[in-house]
């Protein structure tokens, strides 16, 4: 696996985490838990955005290793 694909797989995992958190936030009844899930989701979104930039940058750097 090239570094590019590794980062890409990590990126998709983070996306899945974000979605799961959203699901839990919607399902839980406790307001405190809702808030925590929401805050954590915000952090994950930041991480996701950064990773996306990395993925784009990596594919530009070495387009032959996709």
């Amino acid at each position: 696996m090239t570094v590019g694909s590794q980062v890409k797989s990590c990126f998709s995992s983070v996306k899945s985490v974000e979605a799961s958190l959203q699901l839990l936030e919607n399902k839980t009844q406790d307001p405190l838990a809702k808030e925590t899930f929401n805050n954590v989701q915000k952090i994950i979104t930041e991480v996701k955005d950064d990773l996306q930039k990395q993925v784009i940058q990596l594919s530009k750097e070495e387009p032959q290793y996709k």
Partner: peptide, 19 residues
């Protein structure tokens, strides 16, 4: 960038793990 995000994720894990 990686280090910063790793720390962020660590914080997120700590926040969410009790739940």
């Amino acid at each position: 960038v990686y280090e910063m995000n790793s720390k962020k994720l660590q914080k997120a894990i700590e926040m969410v793990s009790p739940y």
